[in-house]
Amino acid sequence: MKEIRELNLPDSVRYAETHEWAKPERDVVRVGISDYAQEQLGALTFVELPNLGDVLRRAEQFGVVESTKAVSEVFMPVGGEVMAVNADLVESPELINSDPYGAGWIIEVKPEHSEELKSLMKSAAYREMLEGLE
């Protein structure tokens, strides 16, 4: 098990309390789960993705990530319309384990309220929160 200090928590993304990350890319926000979340879940076996065009509020469930150990809901770090889903995860859910911030991204959202992104945690604050969970 990785220690909190060993987790990869890049500064380039923002974090939700429910362990999703969000990263602005041009006019969309890309969303996935953090290194902490994938480490806790262990090897991923299945990902349930939303439909394109779904409009979901912040903190609303948008999918399910499932590992050998647990079935876990994932929640919108920012509200908006689902513009893209990572179809590679259907065949290869393990991408979330191997590259949680890259090839393991889950959805792209067109944010409704851009200030929601700013209210998410920066890397240092998220790491501090994780230390509090231990």
């Binding site: 262990g42 090897a43 076996t45 590992s67 050998t68 150990k69 393990e94 384990n97």
Partner: peptide, 9 residues
């Protein structure tokens, strides 16, 4: 429960 290679591997 598992090692770093993970339960699937």
């Amino acid at each position: 429960l598992w090692y770093p290679s993970g339960a699937v591997a």
